[in-house]
Amino acid sequence: MRFVPIWQRHFLVWRKMAATSILGHLADPLIYMLGLGFGLGSMLPQMGGTSYLVFLSAGTVCYSTMNSASFEALYSCFARMHEQRTWDAILNTPVTLDDIVLSEVVWATSKSLMSGLAVLAVIWLMGLSHSALSLWLIPLSLLVGVCFSALGLIMTALAPSYSFFMYYFTLVITPTILLSGVFFPVTQLPPSLQIVSAILPLSHAVDIARPLMNGIVPPSLLLHIAVLLGYTVFGFYVSLVLFRKRLSR
């Protein structure tokens, strides 16, 4: 439990700028969701028995959670490790590097949960989902958050500078959003890209979220959870090895 005081530290920093942070959680995903939902939605037929806006809302919860986890695990974590040397200060106390890495995962997950909750709150307020099953999107946000936090830390452990993160966002995150069924069904993609989609963690998250939003228990639920957990364990393990190597210099 030695990661708890570090989590408290991050929370105290967050509390000082909570207003801007919450705005950030809400503004970007909502602009996309409502803009595309109403704009494109008015020209589109129903999708899978729901309006385009409802279709989009499930994907928005997943990708905004992913974005939030990724930003925290890359930019903010890198600032603490490299620029502010917060990690160096903490390492001089009876806290180990493993505790710090764990605290970063838990904190980035906490932030992404806030992001997921913010979007979900708007969805419920707008009456886009009436099913009690949609409550399961809260633990799902947690799972998506921990998964992309752990994966993002691999990049942070490798990064020489902030500009390095551009590769990850441009070459990994953006294609992931487009290939994971956030904005349109994966079945619209050519078969070769559908195979790529099937291995991306976000598409498994969307496959859980969308049925739940419509009050249906997702098919192959355990498989999707297992994939997300698998990526989490992989990300955490690899980043830990890389951080140990990086900080032992």
Binding site: Q8, T86, T93
Partner: peptide
Amino acid sequence: NLDPDFTVAENLLVYGRY
């Protein structure tokens, strides 16, 4: 490597928790 977001007292408090 003081915490730039915190006050003097907060820096000591947060560090003691570690």
